[in-house]
Design a protein around this nucleic acid. Structure first.
Lengths: 130, 130
DNA sequence: CTTGACCTTCCCATGATGGGAAGGTGTAGC
DNA sequence: GCTACACCTTCCCATCATGGGAAGGTCAAG
């Protein structure tokens, strides 16, 4: 399987597959006589794992840790759970920060007439409050 | 006022003040005979505006639009409100995405023993589900 | 043997921020 | 006046994850 097919099969773009290989997240695959990367099913499986970890918001570095745990059959599930819950806390923190911004701005907007008059508490507040 | 004092007074780092000037977000300030940037109160006011807009999650580019509206005394408040509410929607969308990730992962973690045994539904799921 | 779809590596760009080097300036104390 | 120190200047580099694109090699179908 060439990189294009591996990309198709895993949902990771060819560009990113090369990048993940370059930074050492995944193992370099076999090469054909002409230098093409050749992927087999286990490689694609790993790529899918990476894609899903990324879609759960893990950074590439964290994904590397998860991959190591995934491959280590003797790891304790507590290690995985700890990592996961720490990540959950970070995600929730970021979500809360965004929501706080949204709430503040929504509140400001609710006091804005939104017509052709220039008075606007949104800009007034951004320009003057602490 | 030199850039250090302007940074202190506005809450925007000296590094970022220079950057904002470089990309055209703010006007280049006066310069002293020796080339130092010299800021006056209106400049600091603008910098504070920028800091607050950024802290509400507006990108630098969006902040530029807000600044233009702020300075345009004849703009309609509807223009500002439209921009603000669009931004609120984006913020809420991002927050929801993060929360969805957190919820998924928390759910997976809730099924993980978290002890010294290796079985872990978190990794199993990341490694096998669609 | 040509054509087109694929592959390779290499470089560049994004967005917002910080770090740090090399060198000039301004001021306080002696 | 000289020295020390804090500040300023510009310039380059790094981050994180991703995409774009160029220049050139490869492969399979027609």
């Amino acid at each position: 399987m060439n990189i294009g097919q591996a990309a198709e099969a895993s949902g990771v773009s060819a560009k990113m597959i090369r990048y993940y290989e370059q930074i050492g997240l995944i193992e370099p695959p076999a090469r054909s006589h002409s230098g093409y990367r050749v992927y087999a099913e286990p490689n694609v499986h790993t790529l899918r794992f990476v894609r899903r970890a990324r879609s759960l918001g893990f950074s590439v570095e964290e994904t590397g840790s998860l991959l190591a745990l995934w491959r280590d059959r003797s790891r304790a599930s507590a290690d995985v759970k700890t990592l996961a819950l720490k990540h959950v806390a970070e995600l929730e923190e970021k979500a809360a920060a965004l929501q706080a911004m949204a709430a503040t701005l929504r509140h400001l907007a609710s006091h804005c007439h939104g017509d052709e008059r220039p008075d606007c508490p949104i800009l007034d507040k951004i320009g003057s409050s602490s």
